[in-house]
């Protein structure tokens, strides 16, 4: 039973990481959102599985929050924003896809090299989970800097949050308050991003960051 719990949790965490990689090579906004939804679903499943296998009912709340906010509300809202504002549907990468993938793989290697020795005395699940979540966080950051579109930067930010929650559910004894606050911070961040996107759009007629940058008086 314990083996099964470990394997399943490991697999679900790996799915979250896999979705992070998938996010990196999406060229279209809608598919980006779809992949992001999948990642949120995988995260929900992880949280629920942890709640079930460790018998910690409060993790069900985390799972529920993740499911409702990240897998339903945000993708739908972003989808509506894209449709409503008629945003150009392709993503222009600042870094070529191949290079991004190479960088992503090396980041995962780095986080495994980093986390495994540090947590030598922790349980195997915690160690794997921390390595996976650190990779997700780093990949989210990589996504934020390798894309020129504002929407994809928002998605990158959300996937960083996913990585944090993955770490939170993996570590036993994380208080519910922390998870709640993370969930709320994601909410707030999403609202701010939404308003932000509308304003950028209203003012500059585009969400392509490269074009927006040229509006700054001081940039070259």
């Amino acid at each position: 039973m314990i083996d099964l719990g470990y394997d399943a949790a490991h697999m679900l965490g790996a799915v979250v990481l896999l979705m992070s990689f998938a996010l990196l090579y999406q060229r279209r906004l809608f598919s980006l959102l779809r992949v992001f939804t999948l990642q949120a679903l995988a995260l929900t499943a992880t949280a629920a599985w942890q709640a079930f296998s460790h018998g910690e009912p409060h993790l069900y709340i985390t799972a529920l929050l993740t499911l409702s906010l990240k897998a339903i509300v945000m993708p739908v809202a972003l989808h509506r924003i894209i449709v409503k504002m008629n945003i150009h549907r392709t993503i222009e990468p600042a870094l070529s896809i191949g290079l991004t993938m190479v960088a992503g793989v090396s980041l995962v290697t780095l986080s495994i090299l980093l986390v495994l020795p540090v947590t030598a005395d922790a349980t195997a699940l915690t160690r794997e989970n921390l390595a996976l979540s650190l990779s997700v966080v780093l990949l989210g950051l990589l996504m934020m800097i390798s894309r020129r579109n504002a929407v994809s930067q928002v998605v990158g930010f959300m996937s960083i949050e996913n990585g944090l929650i993955l770490a939170a559910v993996g570590v036993a004894g994380m208080p519910l308050v922390v998870e709640m606050s993370i969930a709320f911070s994601v909410m707030v961040a999403f609202i701010i991003f939404g308003i932000f996107l509308f304003h950028i759009r209203e003012r500059f007629d585009t969400l392509d960051m490269q074009k927006i940058e040229s509006f700054r008086g001081e940039s070259d």
Binding site: L113, L138, M144, I145, R148
Partner: peptide
Amino acid sequence: YMTIRRYLTLMFLALVLLLVMVAVTQ
């Protein structure tokens, strides 16, 4: 006078550099 993306890149690189240093010293 850098763009937001460049600032993010700098932060990212600094983070990665620190992580690499930690990994190497371990």
